[in-house]
């Protein structure tokens, strides 16, 4: 009871951080969000003269918008699925097996993020040109797959490593074979963290722009690529703003899920926390 009466000092550092973060992250989001629901907003008015859904109707009436949404969802699902198929067994091997070159191979997944990405993409585009993969769906899948490797290897490796080996041994002790142990014990224990990795991979792929633009354009147009062309080619801000708001949807879903995972502590466990 006495403890509750003790006044805690005001956390000024935390407040300053919160204010700065709000200004840097939330303020631009509010501006874009406002633009998406604005029919008329002329300088020097601080707030729009007319709110409305006019540009939503116009944007969603376009076939290329629906085409790009479908393309982005298909790409993100395909890339994430393939990435899980390739990376999860690899992550389990990294976590549990000792093989020659393991450490170097493990750290090599950082390489894709250690150099300027665009230079790497241009180099890959050169190779893809010879392989006739430029402007193809699978070309974009391949380039985006590279971008997911870090998340889909490193996080699941940490997740598998954090599963108590004694739990697996206890399962074998009561009669489970190695595959059953993986399915019934290891995977559920590592599950929330792996789900977070899959989600990060999906969201990252959904937003990926440079690879999709360099390898896929103009035949393969994802939502972010379309948004860039809207912003570059359309004098009307609202088109880009509407697409931006549409792009927020996966982020919000990811945030909601991430909150559950982070609260359960499994995300931190995944990183060895």
């Amino acid at each position: 009871m006495a403890a509750t009466l003790i006044r805690r000092p005001v956390d000024w550092t935390g407040i300053v951080f919160a204010v700065v973060l709000t200004l840097v992250i939330v303020f631009p989001l509010i501006v874009v969000g406002t633009w998406a629901f604005t029919n008329v907003w002329r300088f020097p008015a601080v707030i729009p003269q007319e709110f409305g859904l006019k540009f939503w109707n116009q944007t969603l009436a376009r076939a290329d918008v629906w085409g790009s949404i479908t393309m982005s969802l298909t790409l993100a699902t395909t890339v994430t699925g393939l990435s899980a198929l390739i990376c999860l067994p690899a992550a389990y091997a990294f976590a549990r097996l000792d093989f020659p070159g393991r450490d170097i191979l493990f750290f090599s997944f950082l390489a894709g993020h250690a150099f300027p990405k665009f230079g790497l993409l241009v180099a890959i585009a050169g190779i893809f040109l010879q392989l006739n993969l430029i402007g193809t769906f699978w070309g974009v899948v391949l380039i985006q797959l590279v971008g997911t490797l870090l998340f889909m290897i490193w996080i699941p490796v940490a997740a598998f490593q954090s599963v108590d080996r004694r739990m697996e041994e206890a399962a074998r002790d009561v009669g489970a074979g190695p595959f059953r142990v993986f399915w019934s014990i290891t995977l559920p224990q590592a599950g929330p963290t792996i789900a977070a990795a899959i989600l990060l991979s999906f969201v990252g792929t959904f937003y990926e722009t440079e690879g999709a633009w360099l390898i896929g354009a103009p035949q393969v147009r994802t939502l972010p690529v379309l948004m860039i062309s809207f912003i570059n080619n359309q004098p009307v801000i609202q088109y880009g703003a509407v697409l931006s708001v549409l792009l927020w949807v996966p982020s919000f879903i990811a945030l909601l899920f991430a909150r559950r995972v982070v609260n359960s502590g499994s995300f931190a466990r995944g990183f060895g926390g």
């Binding site: 004694r166 739990m167 041994e169 206890a170 014990i185 559920p188 224990q189």
Partner: peptide, 8 residues
């Protein structure tokens, strides 16, 4: 097991 090793 020492750590109980129950499946949580």
């Amino acid at each position: 097991f020492q750590s109980h090793a129950l499946w949580t």
